[in-house]
Simulated scan of single mutants.
Amino acid sequence: MGDGVGIIEVNQVTKTYRQYKRYPGLIGSMRSLFTRQFTEEAAVRDISFSIGEGEAVGYLGPNGAGKSTMIKMMTGILVPTSGEVKVMDAVPHESRRRIAQQIGVVFGQRSQLWWDLPVQDSFDLHKYVYKLSDTQFRENVEFCTELLSLSSFIQKPVRQLSLGQRMRVEIAMSLLHEPKILFLDEPTIGLDVLAKDQIRQFLRTVNREKKVSIILTTHDMKDIEEICPRMIVVNKGNLVYDGSVARLRSKLGNERRVVIDFRFDPGPVKSPGMTLIHDEGVRKTFLCERGGSAVFESISQIAASYPIEDASIEGADIDSVIRKMYLQLQEEDRDQREIG
Rank of each mutant, 00 (worst) to 15 (best):
A42M: 06
V206D: 11
G243M: 04
D242E: 12
I227Y: 09
E332V: 10
V282K: 15
A172M: 05
H278E: 14
Q165T: 02
F137L: 00
R283M: 06
S174Y: 04
L216P: 06
I103Q: 12
V79Q: 15
W114C: 00
G273F: 06
I27A: 14
V85R: 12
I189N: 09
F202D: 07
I27N: 09
I181S: 10
L132R: 11
R138D: 08
S271T: 13
L117F: 13
F137N: 03
T75Y: 12
A294G: 02
D89N: 14
D192M: 06
V269H: 13
P62H: 09
A246Y: 13
R168P: 02
P229T: 02
F264Y: 15
I322D: 05
E142R: 14
F262C: 05
A42Q: 11
R18Y: 00
L252I: 03
D265E: 07
A90C: 11
L132F: 07
G190W: 07
T218G: 08
D192R: 13
E225N: 12
P307E: 09
D220F: 04
A316R: 10
E139Q: 15
K284M: 07
M221L: 15
E139I: 03
R337T: 00
E289N: 13
V129Q: 10
I8M: 13
V91T: 15
L150P: 12
E331T: 03
Q102P: 08
I7H: 06
R97Y: 04
R97P: 05
D185H: 05
V282A: 15
G292S: 07
V158C: 09
P307N: 08
E53F: 03
S95N: 15
A195Y: 05
T75P: 07
I171H: 10
L148V: 01
A303R: 14
I215R: 04
E309D: 14
A100Y: 04
D335T: 05
T14W: 02
Q102H: 14
V321A: 11
Q120P: 00
T145K: 13
K15D: 02
K210Q: 11
I227E: 05
R263E: 14
F286Y: 15
E41Q: 12
Q301A: 13
P92L: 12
A304W: 05
T81H: 11
V141N: 07
A100N: 12
Q37T: 09
D124E: 14
L216S: 06
Q330W: 06
A172N: 06
S68N: 08
I277V: 15
I103K: 10
G340C: 11
K196W: 01
V79A: 09
Q109T: 01
Q160M: 09
E289C: 00
D220C: 00
I8G: 11
S29F: 07
V10I: 08
E331S: 13
R334C: 00
G104A: 05
Q336Y: 05
F153L: 00
E209W: 03
